[in-house]
């Protein structure tokens, strides 16, 4: 018997995350592929994941503000978070099919000058979000036994 409630939650999650990441509505095809990926990969199931991952997903699902805070936190301190894996999967799906792929093919309007301005205020917004999320999430992260670490890059 398919877990109908689970599928509905997954659809809501997919739609909510897509709106947060891209501002786009998703098609039935995208929902179907998101569900399919979760069916094939049980490690994407939040119910099987560690406590902090489940908590982060619940925060991210609850409200776009929560999604944003989870996004800033995991970008620095928990790159392999389950919620981040879900987002990356969703981006991979969105970029592989029309019409959502078209978003990634087109630059934001305004050219280079607008890019620089957006870079500035987005950078500030990221730092603000990182600050707030660190205060809110890091203690919980520590309590649940994981040691948050900044992920260094390559050379």
């Amino acid at each position: 018997m398919p877990d109908v409630r689970g599928l509905v939650d997954l659809d809501r999650e997919c739609a909510g995350f897509a709106r947060y990441l891209t501002g786009l509505s998703v098609t039935d095809y995208v929902l179907e592929k998101y569900r399919d990926a979760h069916a094939r990969h049980p490690d994407l199931d939040a119910r099987q994941s560690p406590t902090f991952d489940r908590w982060l997903i619940s925060i991210a699902r609850a409200h776009p503000l929560g999604t944003w805070l989870a996004d800033t936190y995991t970008a620095v301190f928990f790159k392999q978070a389950l919620v981040r894996r879900k987002w990356i999967l969703l981006v991979a799906i969105l970029e592989s099919t029309a019409p959502t792929a078209e978003l990634f093919d087109v630059p934001e309007p305004g050219g280079r000058a607008a890019f620089v301005v957006r870079l500035g205020w987005r950078g500030l917004a990221f730092l603000l979000g990182l600050g707030v999320s660190s205060i809110l999430f890091m203690p919980v992260h520590v309590v649940f036994g994981a040691v948050p670490r900044g992920d260094a890059g390559g050379h």
């Binding site: 990441l21 996004d71 970008a75 981040r84 978003l103 990634f104 934001e108 917004a125």
Partner: peptide
């Protein structure tokens, strides 16, 4: 080195 939403937006223009 930024949140994914910002990374996607920056990437489109970059």
């Amino acid at each position: 080195p930024v949140d994914l939403r910002t990374a996607l937006a920056l990437f489109r223009s970059a």
